[in-house]
Every structure is written in C-alpha cells, then in structure tokens.
Simulated scan of single mutants.
Amino acid sequence: MFWKKRYSELLSSIFFLSMIIIVFIFEVFVIRPYLLESNVSNFVTLHLFMAIVLLTNTCLNLYLVVHTDTSIIGMVMPSITPLPPQWHYCYACESNTPPRSFHCKTCNRCILRRDHHCVFTSCCIGYKNYKYFMGLLFNVGFACTYATIMHWHYIWLNINHLGLWAIAAHSVPLGFYLLGMIDLWTTCCNIISMLCIVGAIFASGLFIYHFNLLRMNRTTYERAKSIADYDLSDWRRNLSETLGDRWLLSIFLCPLIKSSLPGDGVHFQTKQEKYLQNKQI
C-alpha cells in the first residue's frame, strides 16, 4: 500500500508541474503572438512579464514547500515524564512530540503543527512551509484566472461557434474530438482552457479555506474537532503566528522576501495563557 500511495503522489506531482509548464508555453508562444497580431503590442510586453513572474513565483513556492523541512528531525525534544499538557509520545519516531504535531505515515515522521499531507507536492504542510503553500495556492489561482481571461477570446474564436454547442465542446473537448466534431488543435486548446478554469476555482477555493483557518489560528484537524485553544482573538496576530511578520509581501509578491516566524513550532501561546498574561498587566 505504501508504494501505491507514493506512486499516485508522484503522478499527481508530475501532472501538476506539467500543467504549469504547458499553460506557460501556451500563453507565451500561442496567445502572445495572437495578441501581437491584434495590434495590442503594449499589452503583449505586459503579458510576457506577467507570465514570467507568475511562473517564477509558482515554481519558487513549490520548491520551498517541498524542500523546507517542517518535521521534528534534528530537534532535541524534552525527555521528561510526565509529559507537559498536550504533548505525546510517538512510537514511530521514538520521541516526545509537541502540541499540534502529528505523525505522517506517508512522510514517516512527525510534522510540526501538521495541517495535512498534500498529494500535489508529495509532502506535509506544517509550521515552516505553510506560508510557501499559501503562496503557491495564491499564485496558481491568480495565474489560472489571468490565463483564462487572456486566452478567452482566442479559445472561442478557435471554436468558431457560439451557443450551447460551443460550451459543450469547451467543457468536454475529448468527447467532441472522438466524435470528429472538432480538430486536434481545438481539442488541446479547450483542454488547456478547462484546466485553467478548474485550477482557478480549486486553488482559489483552497486559498480562501486555509486563509480562514489561519485567521482563527487553527489547523484542519483542530477545525474538525472544534478546537479553538490557540485562537488569540486577533486575526493579524493569528496570521503572523504561521505566516510570519511580512506575510503580505511573501505571499502576494515574492516568496524570497523573508517573513520570520515568531516561534519555533514547538511552543504555542494558548488563548488562556494570553488572557492570564493580559490580566497580570
């Protein structure tokens, strides 16, 4: 079962990366010349610039998500007994693990502030790579939306028909191709367009979902179990707990902009601790 999971994740990752490259090639080498022929040369330069920036940011975020170690490996955990509240012992890692950390059977290690295991990146999303994951979702969602807007006229012009038939041919292009109703090039263009639409909806929806979780300082598990112990009652503070102090620039502009995390992924201030601290002041 283990190798099957890894094999399926490998295919998902290859598909994800391939679609990023294919959409970029389509926008630069098909849509850009089309725009140039449409006498909008000033916009063509902007389109090329946007395509390069979005591809670069997407690939950088993807690389940082995968190569940022967010596990407990290399960290010295306390060996005291009994364990502090919300700490637990992991028999697989043979180590005490801090609150909000869980063992991932696929990664075979405990992940700091584990949220979920992402099949498209083949790694867990946790404390140290969450901001890059959010940057990846934003850039993919924005890039797919932008690409859809830019190639929309070309796609419909290529179908050369308006109405329900065109919508159907755009939605299920492979079926129409097998029936001989559209040619191969139109089929490929429609598939790319549909992938952009689905990607825009999927990535944007996930970004909104996870942003809402971070706004309340929750993980997916904590939301499912209705755990709100770490909600500091300040959405800005909650966001900076996982995304860092410069998350706006890091997520929306460039992942290389440093956004330092306030903690170490082991110790988290709870709502009760914040209340007692404010009460003493």
Rank of each mutant, 00 (worst) to 15 (best):
Y221G: 00
L64P: 04
Y154V: 00
C254V: 06
C90D: 05
L62I: 08
F211P: 04
H88K: 13
V66W: 09
D234K: 11
L60A: 09
W156H: 13
V76I: 13
S240P: 01
V53M: 06
S71V: 02
V23H: 04
Y91R: 11
N57E: 01
A203N: 00
I20Q: 09
F102V: 04
C110G: 07
S8G: 11
A168N: 12
N212A: 15
S12T: 13
W235I: 13
K131P: 05
F102M: 07
G74I: 08
H88V: 04
F211M: 15
E27I: 01
S240F: 06
I159M: 12
L54I: 04
L214F: 14
W87P: 01
M134Q: 12
D264G: 14
M150T: 01
Y209T: 01
F102T: 01
P173G: 10
L179Q: 13
H151K: 12
L10S: 12
T97M: 08
E94K: 14
M194Q: 13
L83M: 14
L35Y: 14
M150D: 00
D245M: 11
I227E: 00
T58V: 06
K5V: 11
F211A: 11
G265I: 02
W3I: 13
I227P: 04
L243G: 06
T220C: 03
